[in-house]
Design a protein around this nucleic acid. Structure first.
Lengths: 114, 114
DNA sequence: GAAAACAATAGACCATTGTCCATGGTTTTG
DNA sequence: CAAAACCATGGACAATGGTCTATTGTTTTC
């Protein structure tokens, strides 16, 4: 799959896809049998990109995402991957807690006397 | 209360407090009877600053916070305040959903075959 | 085969969210 | 009263996460 198709299917812009690739979030191959230097993406890039979009919305940084990708890519060290991902999950849960606090504060502000 | 005390009590740095103030998140007064130009903060600044810290952690932008502060400050239009704040609450809940998706994706990644 | 569409790269540019520094004035403390 | 601690302002600097542009090359389509 080329970048345009991937962009269209994932909803992530070409520029952003290239940016993510530069930052090690996805990889592509260039068939050097070909005359061009077009990137080729596998289907699982699409899965990752959709996850990235949601994860960025959830507040994860590009660096976070890279660490997850790297950890899971090295299936040689499955325990490391598990540790990294579980730490990220814990961070997300903390963030969800913060959101809960903020919501309660705002609800109080609304109904509060002041 | 002066900025140093506020910084110490809130855990927000002086620079950041000034930054927030420049951006309309809090206000201070300068007693012009005095010879200095030191800012004076009221106690509720402390409450707000603590909220800001959590809300930033929860993923709200400074612009979001400003809109909340502005809406609630104009108690003349309580319905507006309610609308603004409830929209922010809705956004936070969406974000919490995104976090939930991300967590599930990550958990699948961990236990998944690949 | 010419035009339109697509792709690559490099680098400039942008907003956001602070942090740090220099300089200079004020207050507190010993 | 001198030093230390505090405060103000303005501007430089930095990291993050993109976005846009220019230039050039490739592919597709009519």
């Amino acid at each position: 799959m080329r970048i345009g198709e991937l962009a269209q299917k994932s909803g992530v812009s070409r520029d952003t896809i290239r940016f993510y690739e530069r930052n090690g979030l996805i990889t592509s191959t260039v068939e050097d049998s070909e005359t061009n230097s077009y990137r080729n993406y596998k289907d699982d890039c699409l899965v990752w990109l959709k996850f990235f979009a949601g994860a960025r919305d959830a507040g994860m940084s590009v660096a976070d995402l890279r660490s997850i990708v790297e950890a899971t890519a090295q299936s040689c060290d499955r325990d490391l991957a598990r540790a990294v991902v579980q730490r990220k999950i814990a961070e997300l849960k903390e963030r969800a807690d913060q959101i809960g606090h903020a919501i309660r504060f705002l609800e109080n502000t609304l109904s509060g006397s002041r």
